[in-house]
């Protein structure tokens, strides 16, 4: 599945919800389901500090693909992180670097990437892209 196919799939899933609570319950559920990182993996090197909550991001190369693993102490952020990993993880650095992430806006969650939330999520997306750019330059 391409990055955009994953995004479109998520958008379709969200069309089923008709109120905010259903939408957030789904995200919370995704947050609970995300495997996250072990305490040893939550290092100072991979922490993305937000004013409100912290996010940890790990990236590694497997064959031609970039694999992301991440965690957060806030469950809604964790649910959003789950979706970002579903969309981006496992693709080539080149595809990740040029990806246009439109699904957050389409499912009405773009405010979570806004400056005021200070939750590390926006920085995490930037960091994912930076990893992708770094890996594509390496090759």
């Amino acid at each position: 599945m391409t990055i955009n196919e994953s995004q479109d799939e998520i958008i379709e899933e969200f069309e089923l919800f008709d109120d905010w609570a259903d939408k957030y319950e789904y995200i919370i559920d995704l947050g609970k389901k995300l495997k996250g990182l072990s305490e040893e993996q939550k290092t100072e090197d991979n922490i993305i500090k937000g004013c409100q909550s912290r996010v940890w991001l790990n990236a590694r190369k497997e064959d031609e693909s970039l694999i992301f693993e991440a965690d957060s102490e806030a469950i809604i952020v964790k649910g959003l992180v789950n979706m970002l990993i579903r969309v981006l993880s496992g693709h080539t650095p080149h595809d990740i670097a040029k990806a246009d992430l439109y699904f957050m806006d389409k499912i009405g969650m773009s405010q979570h990437l806004a400056q005021t939330r200070s939750n590390g999520l926006a920085s995490m997306v930037k960091q994912m892209k930076n990893y992708a750019i770094a890996y594509s330059l390496k090759n």
């Binding site: 957030y24 919370i28 409100q52 909550s53 469950i75 809604i76 952020v77 979570h112």
Partner: peptide, 12 residues
């Protein structure tokens, strides 16, 4: 419960 989750869900 993390305080940020409280803030987001109250805002909604």
């Amino acid at each position: 419960i993390h305080h940020q989750d409280i803030g987001v869900l109250l805002d909604n």
